[in-house]
């Protein structure tokens, strides 16, 4: 019986503590053949299974073409993620995937890539950023705008500072509430739009984060004459199967687990920010 639902065993080969509640797992298939076969796209996710507890959908942070452990950055909020937070290096969990539609790599080629994220929303686009940086010549400017609520919520600060020093790359950070040692902007992520040097004619925008933040950002982008067709976004819903069957992730006509999590903005526009969908 071919069962699309059957997980594969992976081993935790490293675990990075990002903040008290956010951690990154580095995972490797225990069967080396699977390790060679596994392919994913930036923006896709895996279902991670904690033995005896359950599964959660977690986006893939690592560059899909980089041969090495799969990286998943996780916020410890629920039953399964709190359990995953207690894992130690060497322990084993289940993994099935990759699932869903990732970022539009082909459409992005030759264009400026504008990334707008909020909070841990940056995780699903980090693999895209890494993808662009490894194939720099295929893309135009890279503009990264990241907003957080509190300055201490910013993870990967060093990485942002590294990216900031790269040519043809602009990194803008903002925090709703400022704190000590915060040389960046204060306010919502939308305050960064005035500083970003955006060429709306040759850009592709990728958003990820709280839906209200994405909605506000899109309104601002449209006001700046960004065409709706140039905008893509990744959203989250309750997902239990990942294969279009369980019904929880529906947003209007869309099954987020397979039609998304990355959507073309015109597809999702009627549903974005509508309470209850």
């Amino acid at each position: 019986m071919y069962n699309p639902d059957l997980p594969l065993e992976v081993r935790v080969v490293d675990k990075i503590r990002e903040t008290p509640s956010i951690f990154t797992l580095h995972l490797e298939f225990t069967d080396p053949d699977i390790d060679l076969e596994y392919r994913c796209q930036p923006g896709q996710y895996n279902m991670l299974y904690l033995y005896g507890v359950g599964e959660v959908p977690i986006s893939i942070v690592s560059d899909p073409e980089h041969r090495g452990p799969l990286e998943h950055t996780i916020r410890s909020v629920g039953r399964v993620t709190r359990g995953l937070d207690r894992l130690r290096v060497g322990e084993r969990i289940g993994l099935r995937g990759p699932y869903g539609r990732g970022w539009p790599i082909r459409e992005a080629e030759g264009r400026d890539v504008v990334i707008v994220t909020g909070g841990l929303g940056c995780a699903p686009v980090v693999s895209m950023i890494r993808y662009v940086l490894r194939r720099r010549e295929r893309f135009g400017r890279l503009v990264i705008m990241q907003g957080v609520k509190h300055t201490d919520e910013l993870i990967w600060r060093k990485q942002y500072e590294q990216w900031q020093r790269l040519p043809n790359t602009q990194v803008l950070l903002s925090s709703d509430i400022s704190g000590p040692n915060w040389p960046f902007s204060v306010g919502k992520v939308t305050v960064l739009f005035n500083q970003a040097r955006l060429n709306t004619r040759k850009s592709i925008v990728m958003l990820c984060g709280p839906e209200m933040m994405m909605k506000a950002s899109i309104e601002r982008l449209l006001a700046l004459d960004m065409p709706p067709e140039a905008i893509w976004l990744s959203i989250e819903r309750n997902m239990q199967c990942g294969i279009n069957h369980c019904g929880h992730c529906q947003v209007g006509p869309h099954f987020v687990c397979q039609d998304g999590p990355v959507f073309h903005y015109p597809e999702l526009a009627p549903w974005l920010g509508v309470t209850g969908f």
């Binding site: 299974y49 005896g52 507890v53 359950g54 599964e55 239990q240 069957h245 369980c246 019904g247 929880h248």
Partner: peptide
């Protein structure tokens, strides 16, 4: 109606 939840039962 096809919605279903998944559970792990040890």
């Amino acid at each position: 109606c096809f919605c279903h939840a998944e559970h792990s039962v040890p």
